[in-house]
Design a binder for these strands. Structure first.
Lengths: 129, 129
DNA sequence: TAAGGTATACGAATGTTTTCGTAAATAGAA
DNA sequence: TTCTATTTACGAAAACATTCGTATACCTTA
């Protein structure tokens, strides 16, 4: 039902997707146990959400064994990209550099990460000036 | 009602805040006309939202003239920072560098902006290594 | 095979956000 | 003053998201 290029998962959906992206295809039980560490909702709540996500085409359910195994149909990267673009628009009015400055300023960033970003900047400048 | 350090405006609220941050204190009429360019909702919808925001303490209403003039009680920067922190957590699992890389990669960034970011990286490294 | 534990199915309640219809108030023009 | 434009006030509908109770199906194992 959803091949939509700009689908925005709800908050609860995103939490579930994160668990699946991090751990690979999983049962409701597993996902729910992970989520339980940081929030409290009943098991059937998680189940229902994952079923809805499957209906929407966000997840695919492998029903061959009793405990269905769900996996995301959208990659973490493409979803991040989509959400980032939207976030950039709505919150930073499209100014990537402003977002970048704020992100780097408030978070700890290791030397390795800084170097990596420098490399990217060099590349960008090559194609830009 | 809301001095909350971590208040998250809804999407519709954020759109209104953007208009106010960009144009300064404004009437419902003005805000609504701006929003009308990109979305369609009735005038009373915008009015209602702004009234609710005033109740919540997100906006302040100057009622001295017939057409009330609203202004935001939270700055654009602090709101961006708050939303960014949250977004980083929920969407990028806290990895600022990953977010930065994706943001820079997909958007056009001018030479000036790139230099500005380089400067920041230099400063960060100073305090970091 | 009967009992207990665990799973899905389903529907509905709850909560939140967004939308709008309608009425009342207000100001300005005729 | 009276008519008309425009505004605010209010309540409730509609849309969306989240939560959970309960029924039912399915293994496992005693």
């Amino acid at each position: 039902m959803n091949q939509n290029q700009s689908y925005k998962p709800t908050e609860a959906e995103l939490e579930i997707l994160q668990v699946l992206w991090q751990n690979g295809p999983s049962t409701v039980r597993f996902v729910h146990d992970v989520l339980s560490e940081t929030k409290d909702a009943g098991y059937t709540t998680t189940l229902k959400l994952m079923q809805i996500m499957a209906e929407k085409g966000i997840l695919e359910a492998d029903k061959s064994s009793k405990s269905h195994v769900f996996k995301p149909l959208m990659s973490e990267e493409s979803t991040q990209q989509r959400l980032l673009d939207r976030f950039l628009d709505t919150t930073f009015r499209g100014s990537a550099s402003k977002l970048v400055m704020q992100a780097l300023g408030s978070q700890h960033t290791s030397k390795e990460e800084i170097d990596e970003i420098r490399n990217l900047l060099d590349k960008l400048e090559g194609g830009n000036k």
